[in-house]
Design a protein around this nucleic acid. Structure first.
Lengths: 344, 344
DNA sequence: GTGAAAGCGCTAACAT
DNA sequence: ATGTTAGCGCTTTCAC
């Protein structure tokens, strides 16, 4: 697992070679002010000649500082998360930070292990998409060590932590309103589980719109399940079994929508023609699948960028109150919601 | 950028608290053999009580060993690479390694910077999907430092480096043969550039099959371009402009195929009905797009897993000859190649 | 089984 | 503007 490495060139050797002291060499190499350009040049040349490679472990140990950011997401096979990762990466690249990446696969145990590991690495901050069932203690543990955390999913309002998310109530409203406008009155809310605060909020938006339009809420149309594509596929069966089928489906997210669309189509129900589908997230697949998926964008990439930027502020010592940045979701109308026909 | 952290609990404090020496505490915590279970227990309890967090920077400095693996890929928005990443992550998780991730965006400069950074972090190994134009010196530089490298794309045969890839000639053959079997005789080879060794090899397979079937090779049907979705979209225009259009297209990879399919469809040419398309890679989108994409799987996830495993062997000191692991690609027949109609 | 001492490569005070 | 000294927290001899 571990590898022993052989005699690397040290700063001392560079200093000797350049005929200066270790300190001077250090300052010269790190762009400090108090060295003459001549000396700096000498040192840089010496470093190059010797093939010197800066040792961050040593520097980090001594200065008690690091420039590595930990990023923990639940699933690398879900493009929502990889889009988030891509955003974080883009922002962090500019800031010259390096990403230590971990994927939890929705396991609390793995998440604990990853966080412990990152603390051992003395990351300068953590961006966390916490798995279901994560406790407040977990975050407290990190923060107590003085390491800033930015949450990308849940807002544990009970304590202090920066948070970046979308307005989930609004997301539910936008999706549902769109369906209602297209004439649908039996609208299902498919997938996601009540353990997710975002599930509750989207449901709240969904119910609010229904009520506004005097549409009776039908509990049989609210079907819970894990937020994955396979789950969407399975959950669509529940829809098919229903006596009074919905004519529109508001899916908790895009991967569920995609899974459901596949199942429906296999059963001869063509999304966008026989049934209207709306998702949430706007992952890349949403515009690839056919019919193209109408969805409420939750801006995964942008969230990644913003998460990295907030974290950066914190790392630089910003000590203001924890912020909750709430991005306004946006309805993106494509083809899956074209159906205006109302079953039943 | 960097954060100063405050008084962490050190091993010395844990040792004091447990009434043993630093050495003993270290051995106890790291599962060494020469401690009584009683002492070990005492130390572990002390560590917990104090909230001790192991400092890897210090350990790494002293022992000159690390358990971080660097992974460098060109693009986080391309699911081929994220699938690869996912494979690497899966394998590395089991081995208790941590991933330091970098994305080059196909820039040599960024790649250089990332590699330098990883060397400074003293990663124990690097998995590299090198960008176009990468030089041998680059890899030599890493290897000279005693850090093993596994290449996931190009096999720079000029020097010694582990490599994991697919049989590209065979990939070209499988795709082309499939199209020929379906009756196509005018078959385009779309996208990818001649700077890519994989492009040459796939072309070789393509031409070999054409020759076997006495089909004249038509240079106007071999259209180069970057291996991205946007590029596939643009390149499809070239196809549309052709006087004698092909009835089948062998795309360099799936993202090109997807881009091309979109363009073709916009022009009323329905893939799978009016024209046959075959890709390479089998990224997740291939089974989501409609028609589902016939493709030659290049097993990105599996390659990631294997790359991590080879690297692991090297890290553990395996000093055998550089290996080239070539995975046999497999044709996956879906719907985009259903067309048997031959234009012209 | 356990402890004492040394030192990994760097930066931070403090001189000069 | 440059050098001297000390020490970050750990592992590694080596002694007991």
């Amino acid at each position: 697992m571990k590898q022993r490495k052989t005699g690397n060139i040290t700063l001392q050797e560079v200093a000797n070679h350049a005929g200066v002291s270790k300190t001077t060499a250090s300052v010269a190499l790190n762009g400090g002010d108090y060295v003459s350009e001549e000396t700096r040049h000498k040192v840089i040349v010496a470093a190059q000649e010797l093939g010197y490679v800066y040792n961050r472990a040593a520097a980090s140990l001594r200065s008690n500082a690091s420039s590595t950011v930990g990023l923990i997401i639940p699933d690398l096979d879900n493009s929502f998360y990889t889009a988030l990762l891509s955003g974080v990466n883009t922002a962090l690249n500019k800031l010259e930070n390096t990403i230590l990446l971990g994927s939890t696969n929705e396991s609390l145990t793995v998440q604990d292990r990853l966080i412990s590991s990152m603390l051992e690495y003395r990351v300068c901050g953590i961006i966390l998409f916490a798995v279901l069932g994560s406790s407040n203690e977990l975050i407290a543990r990190i923060k107590n060590l003085g390491i800033p955390v930015v949450l990308v999913n849940r807002n544990f309002s009970e304590f202090t932590c920066d948070y970046i998310g979308i307005d989930d109530v609004l997301a539910g409203q936008l999706a549902t309103e769109h369906l209602v406008e297209r004439g649908h009155r039996r609208i299902a809310y498919l997938g996601g589980t009540s353990e997710l605060s975002s599930w509750y909020k989207r449901r709240e938006g969904y119910e609010r719109v229904l009520k506004e339009h005097q549409i009776q809420i039908d509990e049989s149309l609210i079907i819970e399940g894990p937020p994955t594509q396979e789950s969407g596929y399975k959950l669509a069966e529940e829809i098919l079994k229903l006596d009074k089928k919905p004519s529109g489906i508001f899916c908790f997210n895009d991967v569920i929508a995609i899974g459901a669309m596949m199942k429906l189509e296999e059963n001869g129900i063509i999304p966008g023609r026989d049934i209207a589908i709306v998702g949430v997230d706007d992952i890349p697949e949403a515009s690839i699948i056919k019919p193209k998926l109408t969805t409420v964008s939750s801006y995964p990439f942008l969230r990644g960028v913003k998460a990295a930027n907030i974290l950066h502020e914190r790392i630089n010592g910003y000590a203001g109150e924890p912020q909750s940045i709430i991005i306004e979701p946006q309805l993106i109308i494509r083809d899956s919601s074209n159906s205006e026909r109302i079953n039943q």
